[in-house]
């Protein structure tokens, strides 16, 4: 194809797009890009949260930056609400998701996952002393979950006809309604909830029942890419293995989790 014609055409398109207020950082690229943008929820401590200066901190931010360094990528984080994360990935708002996205079959149909970089299990929690026998005791109870999470899907599928499942935008709202007495239980991944249980507000609350692992809940959390981004995915996979191998993962985990808490996803892919 005529190169100058292509450039001319592309630049005029750029102008149209710019006039529409759209951003078009570059024309197509065959190989994985050097500069990538990553989506984070920015509201899921200790994995990710937003600071007063607009920056992000947390386990996933540190880990993600370490992975980018290993993969030779220049990474920028952008914030996106969890429930709209996959649609925005498909709309090319960013290159991949690194925000506690559990890997399950339903999601794997619409995107590409890295190997899991962390694992966690789901569990019920609620006011101390309100112990129930699961699942019979759930009849007619209300349970708070995160909108669009695998936990929401799991409960609806298993006990949707008995339980009043309420979807929230973030974990604080679930905990606030638990404290207010609007819902009976919460159901979520254990690590973020343990932050709440360890806080003064969470003193009156405890875990209930077993830890659940189920294909619906996913097999660890991974970075999620668009279907055609195999090259970028492979780069990130190699980098995840590398940060596990050289001890970086352990070192970052020690910053955020108590000794003895095992978040390693290595057994899932080794």
């Amino acid at each position: 194809m005529n190169l100058s014609g292509l450039i001319g055409r592309a630049s005029s398109i750029c102008m149209i797009v710019a006039a529409l207020g759209a951003s078009l950082p570059g024309v197509s690229h065959a190989a994985a890009p050097e500069k990538v943008t990553i989506a984070t929820e920015g509201a899921f401590p200790p994995f990710n949260q937003t600071e007063a200066d607009g920056s992000f901190t947390g386990f996933e931010i540190d880990l993600g930056n370490a992975i980018c360094k290993h993969a030779g990528l220049e990474c920028t984080w952008v914030k996106q609400d969890f429930s709209g994360m996959i649609p925005a990935l498909q709309a090319k708002k960013y290159d991949f998701i690194f925000s506690y996205m559990s890997i399950n079959d339903e999601r794997a149909k619409v995107g590409l996952f890295s190997i899991p970089y962390i694992t966690d299990q789901f569990r019920f929690y609620g006011p101390k002393g309100s112990a129930v026998t699961l699942p019979a005791g759930l009849d007619g109870k209300s349970v708070g979950v995160l909108s669009g999470s695998t936990g929401e899907r799991f409960i609806k599928e298993k006990w949707g006809d008995k339980v009043d499942v309420r979807g929230y935008d973030n974990l604080d709202q679930v905990n606030a309604d638990l404290e207010a007495g609007r819902i009976d239980y919460g159901f979520n991944a254990q690590l973020p909830v343990s932050v709440f249980l360890a806080s003064p507000e969470g003193a009156g609350y405890a875990w209930f029942g077993p830890s659940y692992s189920d294909p619906l809940l996913g097999r660890g959390a991974g970075a999620m890419f668009r279907k055609d981004e195999t090259a970028l995915r492979d780069k990130v996979n190699d980098a995840i293995r590398a940060v596990y191998a050289d001890g970086t993962f352990k070192e970052i985990a020690a910053r955020y989790f108590k000794p003895g808490v095992d978040v390693s996803a290595e057994p899932l892919w080794k």
Partner: peptide
Amino acid sequence: SFITVRDLMGAANQVYFRTFEL
């Protein structure tokens, strides 16, 4: 839907986020 009531808009959104058909 911001306070967990599932109205028409919230339901439409949920269907979009599940089916990825806008």
